[in-house]
């Protein structure tokens, strides 16, 4: 234990308005902490430099799942256990429910929040491939108001995002229109539980008359931040799933991803496995197509 609690202040204003006022009064001075599964790790390792923290835990506006006919809106401080326990998410957004089960352990899932997972900005974030595949939108809030951006534009560089210093991540919006889509999500981690992704791929596609009408591929641990594989998608959009298509998609992916060597894996391995996961998805898609 390398942190010293006495040199950090932590306040819990209790309401969203009070938190936003605090951020507005001193933009950039306050570090939000929700379930603490990242901040407290940094604290114990002696890496937490933030002198002032504001708690988002227990603020009801931030921990709600609202279901509308066309969309699901998930409060940023919704925990992964909340997601796993929600019947509609399991039914309509199964990849997100699956990803929620990947987060650490039960104890971590009860504290870690969806918003925290995104703001933390790890290239290996467990929820990101699913959110990218589902075309999520992110909503920010501040005393100035609210705004929405596509999740695929949220991360801007390694551990950087487009939140302004006085803004909080408020909610994640997900469309409910994937009942006919073929869906795929696989994480290749260091082990089965308590694992960090070496590679993960989320994918969703809609076939029409044997051709791919819609496709999105979300990847983790293949770039400095979670990213859509746009060029790979382009290599597949409008095509039928011939061996040639699969081969060219594989080539597009290998050209597009930029994994690194680190203490958990190698760039070479990550590239190859990412390509294999894409194959696995496309072969699954082809099999589904073959069965009318």
């Amino acid at each position: 234990m390398r942190g010293n609690a006495a040199i950090h202040d932590l306040v819990a204003p209790g309401t969203l308005g009070a938190v936003l006022d605090l951020l507005a009064a001193e933009p950039g001075a306050w570090t939000p902490i929700a379930g603490g599964t990242e901040v407290m790790v940094a604290f114990a390792a002696g890496r937490l430099t933030a002198p002032k923290l504001v708690s988002l835990w227990g603020i009801p506006d931030l921990r709600a799942i609202e279901v509308a006919p066309q969309s699901v809106v998930i409060g940023a401080a919704t925990t992964f256990l909340d997601l796993r326990r929600h019947a509609l998410i399991a039914a309509d957004l199964p990849l997100l429910a699956k990803a929620a089960g990947w987060i650490g352990s039960i104890a971590n899932q009860g504290r870690a929040t969806l918003g925290g997972n995104l703001v933390n900005g790890s290239p290996a974030a467990d929820s990101s491939p699913a959110l990218l595949a589902y075309d999520a939108e992110i909503e920010f809030i501040s005393v100035r108001g609210r705004r929405r951006v596509p999740y695929s534009e949220f991360h801007t560089a390694y551990k950087r995002n487009c939140l302004a210093p006085d803004e909080l991540l408020y909610a994640i919006h997900l469309p409910r229109r994937f009942a006919r889509h073929n869906q795929y999500l696989r994480k290749v981690g260091t082990r089965r539980a308590m694992a960090i992704a070496k590679v993960a791929l989320g994918a969703i596609a809609l076939l029409e008359n044997g051709r791919i009408r819609e496709i999105r591929l979300g990847a983790a641990s293949l770039a400095p931040y979670p990213m859509r594989l746009m060029q790979t998608e382009a290599a597949l959009l409008g095509r039928s799933l011939t061996d040639d298509t699969i081969q060219s998609a594989r080539r597009a992916l290998l050209a597009e991803v930029k994994p690194i060597d680190d203490i958990r894996s190698t760039a070479d391995y990550r590239r190859r496995v990412a390509a294999n996961l894409l194959d696995e998805f496309l072969l699954q898609l082809r099999r589904v197509e073959a069965v009318p």
Partner: peptide, 18 residues
């Protein structure tokens, strides 16, 4: 897995379906 990959697949061109 990285070692297993090196033994099983590294010799194969990456852009071919294994």
């Amino acid at each position: 897995p990285e070692d297993l990959y090196a033994g099983l697949a590294a010799a194969q061109p990456a852009d071919e379906v294994a």
